[in-house]
Structure formats: structure tokens, C-alpha cells
Design a protein around this nucleic acid. Structure first.
Length: 480
RNA sequence: UCCUCCUUAGCUCAGUUGGUUAGAGCAUCUGACUGUUAAUCAGAGGGUCGCCCGUUCAAGUCGGGCAGGGGGAGCCA
């Protein structure tokens, strides 16, 4: 057997000393021809491997460079130096993989996030990205744990979809037809997909919600957690062309049940990360604090990262209706002094991100759930309220990020749903399968979508969504 | 897609009103030192100043175009 190594995290957290062990990992720094800071990704903390002077031949010493992969066998002892509790006195060091110091781009110094994004295949080996992706893992695990405990069924909705009528965004086409202009055409010049792989036009999914609703009409409670694709030309710090989305769908639920679940869910996964990835979060908190120092005073956040997360876990989200939000915004000094770029004067307009930020960061200073939006600015499947003007929608807005959840109680009444689809020019024939849920045993139900990377952004305190997914895809960029 | 800022060594950045041979710190290499914590000390190498066109006796510096990147907006999760 090759691998009988100890994990560095276990060595560093145990009080045991004076025993032989084997470690493997990547060299972060090599100081004084004696001290190797070794990292194996199990924690951000390095194990100090001590090489006694003269104990290794000159060629091996030269090959211990930043980025090299090594195996060290030796004894764990209480450290003779300051800065770490234990260290490993190496009896032998074996180079598993060389790393040319002149070419390896990571140096024992600070790099900009922009530079690291260009070498995303190597950035896992930095403290910041090590912490981010361990936290990302913890959040993903907690999501499954949360829903499993609540007896939700994890449903895999299709990634290739035939429906393009959901209106959630621009879609990527999926085809095996030739792209050189020789693809078969209809009389009107459009592509004829009859001879395409699926015999019809297909796309990458923009949402698993409609399929999720089908399953909720059998299992009561389901959730999806998978990749989602939007071909929007969005160049922002909070949009990706490929991202992961969590979409629970619950039968026998109304808007309030929906809000309760979403709030409990967000608190649960944040708490899981705080309980299990404390060190990583503390590292990220420190990183954020240093980054904030370079900002002007008025742009700095009032709370540190850990404080902010604790605050979210321990306090109720503010719940207000769209109408109440409009009143607050209209009466705000900010609006009266015309500090908004888009001034609030009438009911019915869509809120701009400056308005959302004002509500969340200035007025309430906590996550806000906005409900009952005007029906004209929301999707066709949202349940119409009795006032005839609004729908049972809810958005959760998080400080620093904006919309993190979008959800609604679904319109379960067939006549109301088809009427709304007609008004919005959504072809009912194409979604006939969806309408069957309303024909056969319909019930009040609700659900929401949560952008996974947005919650990872929030929990890690990072500023750009491209830094919380391993290999980001966005306009003009699909490297690796 | 729109607005705005940026692009100089491997990285992070200086570079004055256009003017000789474009600098620093870190990294790398060579040597010294050896219980170091992003080790330290001495020395060396390293540049198509993003690309193209223009203005000028002269362009890293001024103007135009293109490309790439950052921030903001829209679309949204």
C-alpha cells in the first residue's frame, strides 16, 4: 500500500507527540534549508517538517521548492520553535513531484485575486482558495443534510431540456447539427431540428423548478441541487453563466411556509459552516478585515465576517411586503434628498439594486424578505393574490449581495394559470405536461430557488462570484 | 449590453511639463548564514512599457481604434 499517511489536520489538532508517522503534501515555503511548511489541503495550517542540516543530500535539498510534492517520514515532537505546537523531524524526504521554482507561478507572497483567477487550476493551493472551497464543500454537505433530516427527496432534474418557455433567461443551445451552415432548414429559413440528436430543439436548463413541481405532486417535498445555465451577457460580481442552484418544492405549503423554510435553511447551513469550518472562516474574516483597511471609512462594513454570520443565524429576517417597502423607500430621507439614481414615486416599479441595498444595509441592517410583488414584474407561475394586483412571491435580500433567494407560492388553479400564461404569451401546448399537475390532484404548493454561489459568497465574505466556484464560466471566459 | 477606471520585469507597483541607458519591493538564480515563521545578508540575471495606427525632431508619457481586466448598472439566482 502506498498511502499510509497521516492527515496534517489530525496531526495539528491532536495533543499526541513522540511517534513515527508519514505525511505527504505540497511545499508552501522552504526556509533556511531546514524548515518545510507542508500543506495537504486538510487545513489551511501547515505542518513544519524539519530537515536536520546535513541529513539530506544536496540534490534533494535543491528539489524542495515551492509547489513541489513530497513525502516525509519522521517523528512528531513538541516544536522546538515558536509558532506551532508540534513539528515533524524528518528521517527521510522523498520528492514525489518536482516543481520548477522559476516557472511555478505561486510565490510565498500575496497575489491579487485577479491574477489567481487566471491560474484557477493552481489557486486551490493558496490559503484563501483552500478556505473558500472547504467552506463551499461544507455548505453543499449541509444542504443535503438539512433536507434529508426533513425527509425531502433529492430529485435530479434534467440538464438538457426541451422546454424553452420558462422565461428564466437566455438559454444555451444543445445540438449535434453541423455549425458550418449545412444544417437542414425549414421553408422559413429556421433550422429544422427533426434530424438533430433529440429530433427537436434542446437547451441547457435554466431551472429545474417546473420538473420539481411534478415530483412534489407525488413525494410532497423534494429539492434539486444541480448545475444551471444562463446565456445572459451578464458581467457582474454576482452572475455566472454556469452556476449551481438549490430548488425545494413543497406540496401543502403557502407563502409563509415557504419563507419559514427558506429562513431556517439559510440559518442551518451557515451554522453548519461555523461549527465545522471555524478556522477557514476565521482566516477569511482576517483576509476581509485587511482588505477593508484599504477602503475609505464610509465603505467599510460595521461587522466582521464572523459577527455578521452570527448575527444572521441569531436574528429573524425582516419580512415586509413590496407595498410596505415602496412606502419606506418613498418616505426615506434618501429619496427626499434625491440620493437615489432612480427615485421612488409610484407603486408598481421594479426595485433597483440601490433600493434593495438601502432596505437591507441602511434601513433594517439585516436580511429582508420582500413579499407580494406586483404581478406584472413576476413570472407566470406565481399565485395571484385576491387583490388582483400582486402575486405570492418572495425574494430574500442579503447584505452585500442582494437577491439570494427567489420563490413563490405556485398558482395551482388551472384556469387562473392558463389565463396568466395567455396574457404573457407563454405557449400552453408546450407546457401541457406541466399543466397536468393542475389537472390531476392539484394542491397548494410553494418553492424557491437559491443560488449556491451567492450563499458561498455571503458566507466566505468574498466580493466576486468568480472566486467561489472552482472554474467560473462567464461571457468570454471558459478556461480550463 | 451600457457607464467608468486600468494594462510598465514572474507578481505588486513607481515613472514629473513628451527628452540620454525605464526603476523599486517581492519572487528567481549564485554565494554566505543556519531554530527559521512571507527567514536574513551580499551579488546577479530578468522589459516588444497589452496590440495596431497616428501626432512629433523625439512617445511608457499625447490622440484614435482594438483586445484583455477591475468596479458600477441592467438581466437575475
Amino acid at each position: 500500500m502506498f498511502n499510509n499517511r497521516s492527515r496534517i489536520k489530525e496531526l495539528l489538532t491532536s495533543d499526541k507527540t513522540n511517534y513515527q508517522t508519514t505525511v505527504m503534501g505540497w511545499v508552501r515555503t522552504f526556509r533556511n534549508n531546514q524548515f518545510i511548511a507542508l500543506n495537504d489541503g486538510s487545513t489551511n495550517n501547515n505542518l513544519q517538517v524539519v530537515v536536520a542540516l546535513g541529513s539530506l543530500d544536496e540534490t534533494t535539498i535543491k528539489r524542495i521548492t515551492t509547489g513541489a510534492c513530497i513525502k516525509a517520514v519522521g517523528e512528531i515532537i513538541p516544536s522546538l520553535g515558536k509558532g506551532q505546537k508540534v513539528e515533524l523531524i524528518a528521517n527521510s524526504v522523498e520528492i514525489l513531484g518536482d516543481s520548477d521554482a522559476e516557472k511555478f507561478p505561486l510565490q510565498p507572497k500575496k497575489h491579487s485575486l485577479e491574477f489567481l483567477r487566471e491560474i484557477a487550476h493552481l489557486r486551490f493551493r493558496t490559503n484563501t482558495f483552500g478556505a473558500i472551497f472547504r467552506v463551499r464543500h461544507a455548505l453543499a454537505f449541509a444542504i443535503h443534510e438539512f433536507f434529508n433530516k426533513k425527509n425531502f427527496v433529492y430529485l435530479h432534474t434534467p440538464i438538457i431540456t426541451a422546454s424553452d418557455a420558462e422565461g428564466a433567461g437566455e438559454m444555451f443551445k444543445v445540438t449535434t447539427l453541423p455549425l458550418d451552415g449545412t444544417a437542414p432548414k425549414n421553408d422559413d429559413g429556421s433550422i429544422n431540428f427533426k434530424d438533430d440528436f433529440f429530433g427537436r430543439s434542446t437547451n441547457l436548463t435554466v431551472s429545474g423548478q417546473l420538473e420539481g413541481e411534478l415530483a412534489a405532486m407525488a413525494f410532497s417535498d423534494i429539492y434539486t441541487f444541480g448545475p444551471t445555465f444562463r446565456a445572459e451577457n451578464s458581467n457582474t460580481t454576482r452572475h455566472l453563466a454556469e452556476f449551481w442552484m438549490i430548488e425545494p418544492e413543497m406540496a401543502f405549503s403557502d407563502l409563509e411556509d415557504n419563507m419559514n423554510l427558506a429562513e431556517e435553511f439559510i440559518k442551518y447551513i451557515i451554522k453548519h459552516a461555523m461549527d465545522n469550518n471555524r478556522e477557514d472562516l476565521e482566516f477569511l474574516a482576517q483576509r476581509l478585515e485587511e482588505e477593508e483597511k484599504s477602503k475609505p471609512q464610509n465603505e467599510r462594513s460595521e461587522m466582521g465576517l464572523i459577527e455578521k454570520l452570527e448575527f444572521v443565524v441569531n436574528n429573524d429576517f425582516e419580512r415586509i411586503t413590496y407595498t410596505e417597502a415602496i412606502d419606506i423607500l418613498r418616505e426615506s430621507n434618501h429619496n427626499k434628498k434625491k440620493k437615489f439614481q432612480y427615485l421612488i414615486n409610484e407603486w408598481g416599479i421594479d426595485l433597483q439594486s440601490e433600493h434593495e441595498r438601502y432596505l437591507v444595509e441602511k434601513h433594517f441592517k439585516k436580511p429582508v424578505i420582500l413579499t407580494n410583488y406586483p404581478k406584472d414584474i413576476k413570472a407566470f407561475y406565481m399565485r395571484q393574490n385576491d387583490d388582483g394586483k400582486t402575486v405570492a412571491a418572495m425574494d430574500i435580500l442579503a447584505p452585500g449581495i442582494g437577491e439570494i433567494v427567489g420563490g413563490s407560492q405556485r398558482e395551482e388553479r388551472l384556469d387562473k394559470l392558463t389565463q396568466r400564461m395567455n396574457e404573457m404569451h407563454i405557449p400552453t401546448e408546450e407546457l401541457d405536461w406541466y399543466l397536468d399537475t393542475r389537472r390531476f390532484g392539484a394542491c397548494p404548493h410553494a418553492g424557491f430557488g437559491l443560488g449556491f454561489e451567492r450563499i458561498v459568497l455571503f458566507v466566505t465574505g468574498m466580493g466576486n462570484i468568480r472566486d467561489v466556484i472552482p472554474f467560473p464560466r462567464y461571457p468570454k471566459s471558459a478556461s480550463f
